[in-house]
């Protein structure tokens, strides 16, 4: 059972390192990991060092799924596949924006790979620019709050739904704030033959602007407010949902983070908060969270 070796350059309290550790613990040593360009790649592999103790490869930003598919095909052709699992560990930009083409192709073709999106909701490696994973109202360096702006104008792309539409055997959401949930789902995914997708919510203290010690707490608030629902989908059907008891208002989640601070200090912010509450309410209804 391995984890990332210490000495990597992740920020204190790094969500990527936590996600990688949970994946490594759950999946065991008989794996090959692919990471696209991003924080996880940069912080773990500054030449000539590596934090990885399993075989690991980085090629480009937008091709992790295609590289994983190639590895899987090679192992099959060479008769080395056995129980070896190929796992992609990618950020939200690499998954939901620039790498969607290759990811969709790999899932359509049905390669035996597990793809984990570590979603910290912006391009953190390049300085917190908005991505397709950035939620409504979040201030980033390319969706800043301003005289005429309340931050990001679009809601997160529903990537799990897109992946589920491929008819994949297993698509699930999880959060690094629920390590046991995440590890159970990773284990389940790698034990399934075929393409599996895990979308892990990952609070980033640097990009979201909160104290590094509160990483886990912030992720729990996302789940407890229904802004990040936890569910499992098998062959396009929802088969499991984490129910919420005593749901919290979205303010509890938003006010804990600097990226939403303007919603509480700017005139008209309450209307924006109400829109975000509507998103949470929609999630409750759609995924039957209560």
């Amino acid at each position: 059972m391995s984890r990332l070796a210490p000495g990597h350059r992740g920020c204190p309290g790094c969500c990527d390192a936590m996600a990688a550790n949970f994946v490594l613990e759950a999946a065991g040593d008989d794996i090959i990991v692919v990471s696209p360009t991003g924080c996880l790649e940069v912080m773990t592999t500054p030449y000539p060092e590596s934090a990885w103790e399993v075989p690991w490869i980085h090629s480009l930003f937008e091709n992790a799924a295609s590289v994983a598919a190639g590895i899987e095909s090679a192992l099959k052709a060479l008769g080395r596949k056995g129980n070896t699992k190929i796992i992609a560990l990618a950020g939200d930009g690499a998954t939901m924006d620039i790498g969607t083409l290759g990811l969709s192709g790999a899932f359509e073709r049905g390669h035996d790979i597990t793809y984990v999106c570590i979603d910290n909701e912006a391009y953190m490696n390049t300085g917190v620019q908005r991505s397709g994973g950035t939620p409504y109202g979040a201030s980033t360096t390319t969706s800043p709050t301003g005289k005429e702006s309340f931050g990001n104008r679009t809601q997160k792309k529903n990537m799990p739904a897109i992946m589920a539409a491929h008819g994949a055997p297993y698509v699930t959401t999880t959060s690094i704030s629920y390590p046991k949930d995440m590890m159970r789902k990773v284990k389940k995914a790698v034990d399934i033959e075929g393409p599996c997708y895990i979308h892990a919510h990952a609070p980033c203290s640097t990009g979201w602007r909160f104290e590094s010690s509160r990483t886990v707490e912030i992720g729990k608030l996302a789940v407890e407010t229904a802004l990040w629902p936890l569910y499992e989908i098998e062959y396009s059907e929802i088969t499991g949902v984490k129910k919420i008891k005593n749901r919290k208002p979205v303010e509890d989640y938003l006010k804990a983070q600097g990226r939403f601070k303007h919603l509480f200090t700017k005139e008209g912010g309450e209307k924006e908060i109400a829109k975000i509450q509507d998103i949470a309410d929609w999630n409750v209804k759609h995924y039957e969270l209560e």
Binding site: G7, H8, R9, T44, Y47, P48, E49, V54
Partner: peptide, 20 residues
């Protein structure tokens, strides 16, 4: 340290970097 053709790196070698 010589660079191998392809630049492969040994596992767990970030341990030289004492982030404490």
């Amino acid at each position: 340290m010589k660079i191998a053709i392809g630049g492969m790196v040994e596992p767990g070698s970030t341990r030289v970097n004492k982030t404490g």
